[in-house]
Structure formats: structure tokens, C-alpha cells
């Protein structure tokens, strides 16, 4: 928390803990480091941020509670890990919802009123203040067989979370969603306990999943979105100048965040393609092929709207659909 030298806003210094869900060399960690440097610069050293990478601080869900309680001033949090807290955050799990173009998607994340006002309010009610929604890259499928059409998913054991929404989502393709611990995933993919998994490219490469999968589909079936959050109490108590510097940093980091993930995902895609010891067949879905998947996902939007979220959530979701339509 804050350790002030004196009560005046002028000379007070702040030592913050910023917790992320990833480790060095991954998107969230690199983003948080640059964020820390930029804010430190802007405040002439008044704000010092120490970035805590994913390690022994418990699970992602524990980290969410850490920011809620103010033990970490800031944190990068995947809405996927807050599904039990703010059901509406699962909107980012809907496949083929956002536009195919990653830059347009980022534009929506940056400007959407549905997200930046309505969804933010839902999180604030849970003592979390999202400052920005950032993309960590498009999600891709890997498999022990080629995944090109919905038919390819028939009986396919897909490692994914076992939330009702994910059951419906992969059920729509005829796949069998199989929950599996992350630490057993590499071996289970290798031996075929499960047939495939989904992740952004940088994570697939970092966890070496491509070594034990023969196929990767550039499906861009959705975007892995994370939220840059701060504890609301800490944010509200900030003096004007510090808060302005923080808000500016958030704005300036939007483009940087996009660049960081873009560069990492591109580099590591090359690394997967060039790994001749562990050859991986990479295909990219065409517009027509994506349309076939999108068609099957339309009812899932209704399921999400009717079964998962509340009235406020529906207002947010309808607005988001309009905003997305405007961008297409």
C-alpha cells in the first residue's frame, strides 16, 4: 500500500505491487514492466512499481482476491478467472464475436462504452477497477489431427475449462470439452488423453505444446483479453497529479500492449513453424471456413445472454453487439 513521507501530495512516494498471471517473456509481464517504467518516469520517481510474476502467490483466482483486498495495488487479470465473480466477464469467451481483424478488435476494446463503462461498473461493484482491456493475441487451436471444419471436432477431446458456457461452446461443434490440470496437459496431449487445446500462440510455444501436437489451426476464434486493474480504494485516494499520470500511462500503453503481443505472437509462430525437430502443420482458416464456425456459435450468444448474465449484463451485451456491428 502507500507509504507517505508526508501528507502533502507533492513529495509523497508510492510503492506498489503489480501482480500478473504470466512470467518473464510473456505478454502480461512485459506489459507490466513497461507500465511500471513509464509511470515512474511520468511521476518523477514518485510511483515505484514492483512487478510480481506468476509463481508462488497462489492461483489466478487468489491474485484476483489479492487486488480486491488491496494487498496488490494493481494486477492484470483474465476475465476468464473472474467468471465466478462477474459472470459478464465471460463475454470474452464467446467465439467469433469480435471482428477477425485484431487491430479492429483492439480498437473496440479501447473505445467500447459497453466494456469501458458498463462492464467496468460490474467489476467495480466487486472492488476491482479495470483501467484497460488488452489483447494478448488471437486464440488458436492445436490438435493431434487437422481442425478445419466443425466436423473435425466430432468426438474431439478438447482441453478447456468446464464452465457451462464452454460446455455449450464446444458442444456446438460436437466436441467433448475435457477439463485437465495445466501441469498434466503436456503429457496428456502427447499420449492422447486429450486431443487438443486452445491458447494464444506465445503461450503454446512457451509451454512447448507444439512439440506434442501435429497440427495448429490459425482459427482466431476469439481474442485472449486481459484487464489491467487497480484496487478502487487506492485509485480514488490518489492525488490529482498522480491519478492523471496513471491515466496517461494507461492510454499510452494501449498501443504498446498491442505491439508487445503482436511481436511476441509473430516471433513465436515463426519459432513453431521453424521447429523441424517437432514438425507442426499450420493451417489458416479461410473466411468461408470461419463463417461455418461462426454460424454454429450464434446460438451460444443467446445462451450467454439468456442463461449466464443478469439484466445489467444484457444491457451491456446488446450495446457491445451494436458497437461491434458498427465496426464491421
Amino acid at each position: 500500500s502507500t507509504e507517505g513521507d508526508n501528507g502533502a501530495s507533492g513529495g509523497e512516494t508510492y510503492d506498489w505491487r503489480f501482480v500478473v498471471e504470466e512470467t518473464e517473456g510473456q505478454v502480461q509481464y512485459e506489459y507490466a514492466q513497461e507500465f511500471a517504467e513509464l509511470l515512474n518516469e511520468k511521476t518523477d520517481g514518485q510511483v515505484n512499481i514492483d512487478v510480481y510474476d506468476f509463481g508462488s502467490l497462489g492461483s489466478e483466482v487468489d491474485q484476483v482476491e489479492g487486488v480486491q483486498q488491496g494487498m496488490f495495488e494493481m494486477g492484470i487479470i483474465s476475465p476468464g478467472f473472474t467468471g465466478g465473480l462477474v459472470a459478464e466477464g465471460q463475454v470474452f469467451s464467446l467465439q467469433f464475436l469480435f471482428p477477425d481483424d485484431q487491430e479492429v478488435t483492439q480498437e473496440i476494446l479501447n473505445t467500447s462504452e459497453a466494456l469501458n463503462t458498463h462492464l467496468v461498473e460490474l467489476y467495480e461493484a466487486q472492488n476491482l477497477k479495470p483501467l484497460a482491456f488488452m489483447s494478448e493475441g488471437a486464440m488458436q487451436w492445436t490438435g493431434n489431427r487437422e481442425l478445419r471444419t466443425p466436423d473435425d471436432f466430432n468426438g474431439f477431446k478438447m482441453r478447456t475449462q468446464s464452465s457451462p458456457l464452454m460446455l455449450e461452446t464446444y458442444g456446438a461443434y460436437g466436441a467433448d470439452p475435457s477439463p485437465l490440470s495445466w501441469s498434466e496437459l503436456y503429457v496428456s496431449l502427447d499420449r492422447g488423453v486429450v486431443d487438443g487445446q486452445e491458447n494464444p500462440i506465445f503461450f503454446i510455444e512457451d509451454a512447448s505444446f507444439h512439440e506434442v501436437q501435429d497440427h495448429m489451426t490459425i482459427s482466431n476464434h476469439n481474442t485472449y483479453v486481459a484487464m489491467v486493474t487497480i484496487n478502487p480504494g487506492i485509485y480514488n485516494d490518489l492525488p490529482e497529479d498522480i491519478r492523471t499520470a496513471l491515466d496517461e500511462t494507461v492510454e499510452e500503453m494501449r498501443d504498446r500492449g498491442f505491439e508487445i503481443q503482436d511481436q511476441l505472437n509473430e516471433e513465436l509462430l515463426d519459432s513453431i513453424v521453424n521447429d523441424t525437430d517437432n514438425p507442426t502443420e499450420v493451417i489458416e482458416l479461410t473466411e468461408e471456413e470461419r463463417a461455418e464456425f461462426r454460424e454454429l456459435q450464434l446460438p451460444i450468444r443467446d445462451f450467454f445472454r439468456d442463461e449466464i448474465i443478469g439484466d445489467e449484463g444484457r444491457e451491456m451485451f446488446d450495446l457491445l453487439l451494436e458497437e461491434i456491428a458498427e465496426h464491421e
Partner: peptide, 12 residues
């Protein structure tokens, strides 16, 4: 776990 924490290391 080591491979995740260390960049560019193959589990295999």
C-alpha cells in the same frame, strides 16, 4: 514447470 518459467526451453 521449469520449461514454463524458462524461455526457449523444450520440455522434450
Amino acid at each position: 514447470i521449469y520449461a514454463l518459467a524458462a524461455p526457449n526451453v523444450s520440455v522434450g
